[in-house]
């Protein structure tokens, strides 16, 4: 991947000057933008396709994916559809709402503004301002689906602008680290939540079931058409789970994102002399990837899909903490011995 290598323009003395705070902001900027895109897609798909036995939209799924059960329940004991939508789109007090995340994006973008391209900043500036000004009447006027589509497209525009304009140095690598970790996390949450709503009993693993519902799982990950191309005949839970977890060509699959995380870490080690900082993180990641490669989807399901997804989420969280400890440690853990520059 040529885009991961540093440019060789002789500016070696500047190679290791990325501020810790910038690295942190770049990583979170990417994570929040991914999260917004995922949530917008999930809301849109849920409204259209996720139905319970009574034919009603099952909004609880979104609450479960975000692990917001307690908080949401306390705020809205008898929740209506409006409550769900507002909680996840316009409620600024909810940090996992689109507005709450747009706010976080804005702060991180402002923080990293000296580094990101003007085009990136301009787009984020306008986008986040627009989201922060949204109110429930806008949702009613525009329609939920159209609004979610716009949000999704803005996120994808961001991804494109970033790909096309952000300078390829450490800041870019930390940005990628955030993107791939977030995608890994999102896909496991989606599978975990939906699998257990749709298939509470393990006996039915191989059987063909409600195709519409499984298609909605795929749509929630923007995976439907890719899956169709690959699996034209059968839609079994194992096929779907296998595709989302193990497919190496699908941009949101767990396997692909873990591999890309690994590539990014390798680039930091090789080109920026950060091998020592990366050691523990790479160890953990290798183990994680090995467990995924060594099992088929059927084995994963039989051994306990929920437990495995839960374990992976913990590992991703641990990687995030290790990245933080290695690259933006609290002040009291810094020592002069770590100073790499000459006086």
């Amino acid at each position: 991947m040529t885009q991961l290598s540093p440019t060789s323009n002789g500016m070696l003395s500047n190679l290791n000057t990325l501020l810790s705070r910038y690295a942190e902001s770049m990583m979170w900027l990417a994570r929040y933008m991914e999260r917004i895109e995922n949530l917008a897609r999930l809301i849109e798909v849920t409204e259209a396709f996720v139905r319970g036995p009574d034919g009603k939209t099952v909004w609880e799924t979104i609450v479960q994916i975000n692990s917001d059960e307690e908080r949401f329940q306390a705020l809205h004991p008898a929740a209506t559809e409006q409550d769900y939508i507002q909680f996840y789109i316009t409620d600024l007090a909810n940090p996992s709402s689109i507005k709450g995340m747009a706010n976080a994006v804005r702060e991180n973008a402002r923080s990293a503004r000296p580094l990101i391209s003007t085009e990136m900043w301009m787009h984020l500036n306008v986008f986040t301002r627009w989201v922060l000004d949204l109110d429930p009447s806008d949702i009613r006027r525009t329609g939920l689906s159209a609004l979610c589509n716009r949000i999704k497209q803005e996120c994808q525009t961001h991804t494109g602008v970033t790909e096309g304009t952000l300078y390829r140095d450490q800041a870019w690598l930390f940005y990628l680290l955030g993107r791939h970790l977030e995608r890994s996390d999102q896909i496991t949450r989606l599978i975990d939540t939906r699998y257990h709503t749709l298939l509470p009993c393990e006996e039915e693993v191989g059987s063909e079931i409600d195709t519409t519902q499984w298609a909605s799982v795929l749509r929630s990950a923007a995976a439907y058409h890719a899956f169709r191309r690959l699996q034209p005949v059968t839609t079994t839970p194992a096929n779907v789970v296998g595709f989302l977890l193990k497919n190496e060509g699908f941009p949101r699959s767990l396997a692909l994102n873990l591999r890309q995380t690994d590539t990014v870490l390798a680039a930091l080690s090789a080109h920026y002399n950060l091998r020592r900082q990366n050691y523990a993180i790479q160890e953990r990641l290798s183990e994680l990837r090995a467990t995924l490669e060594d099992q088929t989807a059927e084995e994963i399901i039989i051994r306990g899909l929920h437990e495995y997804m839960h374990w992976i989420q913990n590992q991703i969280e641990a990687i995030q903490s290790e990245v933080a400890a290695a690259y933006w440690p609290p002040v009291e853990r810094l020592h002069l011995s770590e100073c790499h520059g000459e006086q």
Binding site: N16, T17, L18, L19, S20, R21, A23, Q170, F174, Y272, N273, L274, Q277, Y327, W328, V331, L334, L336, E338, C339, H340, G341, E342, Q343
Partner: peptide, 12 residues
């Protein structure tokens, strides 16, 4: 002496 906190540790 003054240092800044970078991903590679402290830099003068």
């Amino acid at each position: 002496h003054v240092y800044m906190r970078t991903v590679a540790g402290l830099r003068p």
